[in-house]
Amino acid sequence: MGKQAVTVIGLGPMGRAMVTAFLAEGHPVTVWNRTASKAGELVAQGAVTASSVEEALAANELVVLSLTDYDAMYAILEPAAHALAGRVLVNLSSDTPDRARAAAAWAAGHGAEHLTGGVQVPPPLIGKPGSATFYSGPREVFDAHRETLEVLTGTDFRGTDPGLAAMYYQALMTIFWTSMLSYLQTLALAGAHGVTAAEMLPYASRAMTMMPHFLETYAPHIDAARYPGDVDRLAMGAASVQHVLHTNRDAGLDTALPAAVDGIFRRGMDRGFAENSFSSLVEVLKQPAG
C-alpha cells in the first residue's frame, strides 16, 4: 500500500521543509502557494503544483496549512470554501487559542475537519529526531493521520479542545521570546562594558542550564496556590531587579525590558507579597495591570 498523499498550502521556509520531508519518505505531495515560483525546487524533487486552491484541495483528503496566521488561511480558503467538504485541515499556522476554536467551527461548517497544530522546532529540524508538534482537535482524526504527521515531527496530542495546541505553543513562545530578548539585553549590557558576545556566551549558557531547577521548584507552588518564602523572598528579588534596572540605565541602554520587570515586582510588593516567594507574582500576572 502506497504512502498517503498530502496537500501542502503555504511554501514559506516551514512549508518547504515539510514538503521535502514528505517527499523524502515517499508521500505524494501537491503544493500551492500565492507566489508560485517558490514551488520550483519542490517540483524538481517530485511535488506537483496545483494551479488553484480548489485544485489543491481536491487533490487530497489531508491538507497541511503552513501560513503566517489564520487571517492568511481565511484569505486563501474562503473563496474556495465549496471545496473543503471531506477534507482534513491540519492547521500548523500560528495564532491564538480562541482563533483556533473559531477556525475549527468554521471548517466544520464547510464539512471539513480541523486539527490545530503548534510546531515546536524551526524548519531545519523538520523530519529530524527529537522534534515535536502539539496537536488538538478530534482524536479520531488525529489517530487516523498520526503516522503521516510523524514524518514531520513527533506528535504530542493535547486534547480535543481545538485551542489547546495553540495555547501550549504560545505558552512556550512566551518563554522563548522573553528569554531571547533578555539575552539580547544581556549582550547589550556586556557590550557597553567592552565584553563581547562570544566572551559572555558560556556564562549565559550556564545561567540557562540552571532554569530547570527553578521551574521544578515553582511549579508545585503555582498548582497549590501557596508561595512559601522559605528559599527566596519577593523583597530580595525586588531589590535585585532594581540593581539590574540601574545597571542598564547607568550603561545608557534602553531600559524598557528591565523596567517592565521592575513594574511587575513592584505590583507584587504592593499586594503584600514581600515575604512570599517570587512565585507569588503569578497572582499579579493573572490580572491586567490596572
Results as ranks from 00 to 15, higher is better:
Gln45Trp: 11
Gln45Tyr: 09
Gln45Gly: 12
Gly46Cys: 15
Gly46Ser: 12
Gly46Phe: 15
Gly46Ile: 13
Gly46Ala: 08
Gly46Tyr: 12
Ala47Lys: 11
Ala47Cys: 12
Ala47Val: 06
Ala47Tyr: 07
Val48His: 11
Val48Met: 11
Thr49Ile: 12
Thr49Tyr: 10
Ala50Phe: 13
Ala50Cys: 10
Ala50Pro: 04
Ala50Ile: 04
Ala50Val: 09
Ala50Thr: 13
Ala50Gln: 07
Ser51Val: 13
Ser51Ile: 07
Ser52Ala: 08
Ser52Lys: 05
Ser52Gln: 02
Ser52Ile: 12
Ser52Arg: 08
Ser52Thr: 15
Ser52Glu: 11
Ser52Asp: 12
Ser52Trp: 14
Val53Ala: 06
Val53Met: 02
Val53Ser: 02
Val53Cys: 03
Val53Phe: 12
Glu54Ala: 13
Glu54Gln: 11
Glu54Lys: 05
Glu55Ile: 03
Glu55Val: 14
Glu55Lys: 02
Glu55Cys: 12
Glu55Asn: 01
Ala56Gln: 13
Ala56Gly: 08
Leu57Gln: 11
Leu57Lys: 07
Ala58Glu: 15
Ala59Arg: 07
Ala59Ile: 04
Ala59Met: 13
Ala59Thr: 14
Asn60Leu: 09
Asn60Gln: 15
Asn60Trp: 15
Glu61Ile: 04
Glu61Val: 14
Leu62Pro: 05
Val63Trp: 07
Val63Lys: 03
Val64Ile: 15
Val64Tyr: 04
Val64Ser: 08
Val64His: 12
Leu65Val: 03
Leu65Glu: 06
Leu65His: 06
Leu65Phe: 11
Ser66Gly: 02
Ser66Trp: 14
Leu67His: 07
Thr68Trp: 12
Thr68Tyr: 15
Thr68Met: 09
Thr68Ser: 15
Thr68Pro: 01
Asp69Met: 05
Asp69Leu: 14
Asp69Cys: 14
Tyr70Val: 04
Tyr70Arg: 00
Tyr70Ser: 05
Asp71Cys: 03
Asp71Ala: 14
Asp71Glu: 14
Ala72Met: 03
Ala72Val: 12
Met73Ser: 09
Met73Pro: 00
Met73Ile: 11
Met73Arg: 02
Met73His: 05
Tyr74Cys: 00
Tyr74Asp: 06
Tyr74Gln: 03
Ala75Phe: 09
Ala75Glu: 14
Ala75Trp: 03
Ala75Leu: 01
Ile76Arg: 00
Ile76Ser: 01
Ile76Gly: 01
Leu77Tyr: 04
Leu77Arg: 00
Leu77Ala: 01
Glu78Ala: 05
Glu78Pro: 00
Glu78Phe: 01
Glu78Gln: 02
Pro79Arg: 00
Pro79Val: 06
Ala80Cys: 00
Ala80Asp: 01
Ala80Ile: 02
Ala80Arg: 00
Ala80Gln: 04
Ala81Pro: 01
Ala81Phe: 02
His82Ala: 13
His82Glu: 12
Ala83Trp: 07
Ala83Val: 08
